[in-house]
């Protein structure tokens, strides 16, 4: 189960099972969320897919429908692409109320318009009662890359700065607050949002952004680890500069979680050359989703592949990906 949690287990499943098993057929596959295909006329298309399994289906600030649209939009956006079209696939559990499905579908329509794309093709399957959590959604999307954009995790290089687009931990905590057995009261809402407009604004300020990730499952820690490992660089960040809302910190406190391991659905982390950092930051802050963007750290030569956090006391600690699903603890 943990292999779907977006942590280390997910990465290992891809690396140790899927890629070797796919063999030659996955020769050109990249371990990133979106793959770039170059057409004969030089036009570059980004292609991505994701499947959404969310409990509960509705949570403070959104539902599975918005996640399914924004998730794939954001995967495309992390390559720099502006999304054009999305396919939608539904696996419905027998007995799902039509009203519920209708609300989810309406949310998807509104989300697509907000992201500026069309929902163009789809498929529906129904499984027996007891064989699904109401509804699972798969979306696949294509987008067009602007000329010149070359955004890949392996382009992070020493000296680059690390920028986070806003407050972290909102989505994960909002969803946990409704989980049976854990229920707690909070005004926190999921941050689910499309990031393609933010990325467009960033690229307009600096076409040479080195790397982008959206820290969903596995949180900021997983994104930073992925960049550090792929580029074989070290990443250092200052814990005190992380934008963590007080309520997220509080919830993490009594659940025994670390905010950098908690999922986001409308945030990105950017790796940018130091000369462009201020311009990119200003462009981000001018958008509605990047208002509290902040520089949190930098890419360094030392400790290739490792993410190091500087603590409030001035010491350092290694940051690892979370093991899998985030569970509350007593010790």
């Amino acid at each position: 189960m943990g292999h779907g949690g977006g942590g280390q287990l997910s990465a290992e499943l891809v690396q140790h099972l899927f890629l070797p098993s796919f063999g030659e057929a996955a020769r050109t596959a990249t371990p990133t969320d979106a793959h770039v295909l170059t057409l004969g006329n030089g036009v570059r298309l980004a292609f991505s897919t994701d499947t959404y399994v969310v409990r509960p289906l509705f949570f403070p600030g959104g539902n599975i429908g918005e996640l399914a649209v924004y998730g794939t939009v954001n995967d495309l956006a992390m390559s720099g692409a502006q999304p054009l079209a999305l396919s939608t696939g539904f696996v419905l559990e027998e007995g799902l109320e039509m009203d519920v499905l209708g609300r989810i579908a309406a949310a998807m329509g509104a989300a697509a318009l907000k992201a500026g794309l069309q929902l163009v093709t789809g498929d529906t399957k129904v499984v027996e009662h007891g064989h699904g959590d109401g509804v699972y959604i798969n979306t696949a999307g294509i987008g067009v890359l602007p000329a010149g954009a070359d955004i890949r995790p392996d382009r992070a290089r020493p000296g680059d700065v690390v920028i986070v687009s806003g407050e972290i931990g909102l989505h994960g905590i909002a969803v946990l607050s409704l989980r049976e057995g854990l229920e707690f009261g909070t005004e926190l809402r999921s941050d689910t949002a499309p990031l393609n407009h933010l990325v467009a604004a960033m690229l307009a300020a600096c076409p040479d952004i080195h790397a982008l990730r959206d820290p969903t499952r596995g949180g900021l820690a997983a994104s930073l680890c992925e960049i550090a490992e792929t580029a074989q660089v070290g990443i250092e960040f200052d814990e005190r500069s992380l934008p963590v809302p007080e309520a997220v910190r509080a919830a993490c406190g009594f659940l025994g979680l670390d905010p950098i391991h908690v999922a986001n659905e409308g945030k990105l982390v950017a790796i940018v050359a130091p000369d462009h950092a201020e311009a990119v930051l200003a462009a981000m802050r001018a958008t509605d989703v990047g208002g509290s963007a902040a520089i949190i750290g930098r890419v360094v030569e030392e400790n290739g592949g490792v993410v190091v956090a500087r603590t409030g006391l001035g010491s350092t600690r290694i940051v690892d990906r979370p093991l899998g699903e985030q569970l509350p603890r007593i010790c």
Partner: peptide
């Protein structure tokens, strides 16, 4: 064996289930 006590230093557990 407590996963959350390993915080970066312990590698035996943060490797994930496959190993």
């Amino acid at each position: 064996v407590h996963p959350s006590h390993t915080d970066g230093r312990d590698d035996g557990l943060q490797r994930g289930r496959l190993c």
